[in-house]
Design a protein around this nucleic acid. Structure first.
Length: 489
DNA sequence: CGGCCCATTATTAAT
DNA sequence: ATTAATCCATGGGCCG
């Protein structure tokens, strides 16, 4: 752009952009200086081309949200009083500005960013309660000398009842959305959400575009008493993993390249891995509690055995572009499915993946990016979702039967891509639509057979989670930080 | 073709 | 009620 020909308006705009970048740098938001200036450069370019005027400071500057009365009334958070039951989430924001500022461009190799401590006793006790419950359950199920995989003898195996969680046909007609099962739990666009695998309570954790991790204890009578918000990340949250048999531990990953571990026993969020490249998906092989699988950069898949070292133990170039989801087959944890923006979804055998050119067991080709590939609860089918307006269904003894089901999957820029998820058995898939509904696809009839709608849904639900134990309990999340929880009654 | 620019869209906070 | 701000997704068009 020709600097001479700028209008005053544009000049001011550029000045603002510069200031913002400086501020971001001084906040030491998380990345290395080099990455930052790269980012800054890119943003400048972007802003120029995009005719946008970032007059305002980034959103993270203003105390956000809903939950506790302090914030609701727009008052500044108060950390001095000893009242334990109060808004905490701003703690994460307070960390930044207090640390010494780094001028843009200077070298600051590894920032001594401490863990983000969690002080909300109410929240901690809740999580620790779930954890205790889950440990009791797991001690029933766990047997020490189970069959062990030949390749990873290090891993502890926890026995599960075959088929995983629940088997059950859902009564679609009974699924309802009540006004009290709606909450806005975070400010940004929700990218990811998950039910705690908990029988006695209903707890949802979600991650949004600006790095927040929010918790909603649905059973609380008042919304503000059940919502807890933190901001351990500074970038979009790409994955959330609750440790099923130790629910006080939750892994989260983000586009900025970090993986954090929330540990309610240690009362912290702590960064445990950091990469130059974006982390775009995160998963865990069933029963292998010490291994993380995550998609990094353009098509890379990493396996990290956390006991073996600080870095991933293996890394394979499985795709050409980003890996959007990673999923494992409940019947055979050696079988893994990935979906990628390179327009394919692939099934892999982990025992045969150790080579420079890993070979797929099966490839589902779409004509556009594939945003999800999930195995069905029984493990015998795979459902893929692509922005080419199709949901792929792969079945048969060796996944040789492929059928494509038409579904409008195109979302606009502000709505996260749709991903068809499985319900509680192999009969239905649940996926959002642009008309503020939840389409239910019957796998037997290979078409949408019903749409959940409600006047209470004021926005498009785009990401979903089905409760692992409660048939009919389905949570949908929106671009505005809302969650709708349907349940069967 | 690959790499760039551009338009598109939904939701919410602010006016 | 209307408007402004959002800005890490994607396809199409247009250049070299």
């Amino acid at each position: 752009m020709d600097l001479q020909n700028l209008t005053d308006y544009e000049r001011r705009r550029l000045e603002n952009i510069r200031r913002n970048n400086e501020m971001v740098a001084s906040l030491k938001l998380h990345s290395k200086a080099a990455a930052l200036s790269e980012e800054a450069k890119r943003r400048r370019v972007e802003s120029k081309s995009n005719k946008v005027s970032p007059k305002k400071k980034p959103k993270t500057q203003s105390p956000i949200v809903i939950r506790r009365s302090l914030r609701t009334r727009g008052l500044p958070p108060d950390f001095s009083s000893g009242n334990g039951h109060k808004n905490e989430f701003v703690e994460s924001m307070m960390k930044g500005p207090k640390s010494p500022s780094t001028p843009e461009g200077s070298k600051s190799p590894s920032l001594p960013e401490g863990p983000l401590s969690i002080r909300d006793r109410v929240f901690l006790d809740k999580i620790l309660g779930f954890s205790k419950e889950s440990q009791l359950r797991s001690s029933d199920k766990c047997s020490a000398d189970d069959e062990v995989d030949e390749k990873k003898p290090l891993d502890c195996l926890i026995k599960r009842e075959s088929g995983g969680g629940v088997e059950g046909s859902v009564d679609l007609g009974s699924m309802t959305l009540n006004a009290e099962n709606i909450a806005r739990i975070m400010p940004g666009r929700i990218m990811n959400l998950r039910f705690f695998p908990c029988i006695d309570s209903t707890m949802i954790v979600a991650g949004d575009k600006s790095g927040h991790i929010g918790f909603w204890d649905v059973d609380c009578e008042k919304e503000r008493d059940g919502v807890f918000l933190y901001q351990p990340h500074k970038d979009p949250v790409s994955g959330i993993l609750i440790q099923e048999f130790s629910q006080s531990k939750i892994f989260t990953s983000c586009y900025g390249g970090s993986i954090q571990l929330m540990d309610a026993e240690k009362e912290v969020f702590d960064k445990i891995y950091s990469s130059e490249r974006a982390i775009l998906s995160l998963s865990q092989r069933p029963n292998y509690v010490n291994c993380l699988y995550f998609g990094e950069g353009n098509g890379g898949l990493n396996l990290w055995d956390m006991r073996a070292g600080k870095e991933p133990s293996s890394s394979w170039p499985l795709h050409e572009y980003r890996i959007n989801t990673i999923d494992f087959n409940i019947n055979n944890p050696n079988i893994m499915a990935t979906s990628s923006s390179d327009t394919t979804a692939c099934i892999w055998d982990l025992r045969k993946i150790d080579s420079d050119k890993p070979k797929t067991l099966k490839t589902v080709s779409h004509s556009r990016a594939v945003h999800s590939a999930y195995f069905s609860p029984s493990g015998s089918s795979l459902a893929t979702t692509s922005v080419e307006n199709k949901v792929g269904l792969l079945g048969g003894v060796n996944f040789e039967d492929l059928s494509m089901i038409y579904h409008e999957n195109h979302t606009c820029r502000w709505i996260s891509s749709f991903r068809a998820i499985w319900g509680w058995d192999d009969s239905y898939l649940f996926i959002g639509n642009m008309k503020r509904g939840v389409d239910i696809i019957s796998t037997a009839r290979r078409k949408t057979v019903m749409t959940l709608q409600s006047e209470h849904m004021s926005a498009i639900p785009c990401r979903f989670s089905a409760h692992p134990y409660k048939v009919g309990m389905l949570a949908g999340a929106t671009a505005g930080g809302q969650i709708y929880m349907w349940k069967s009654c």
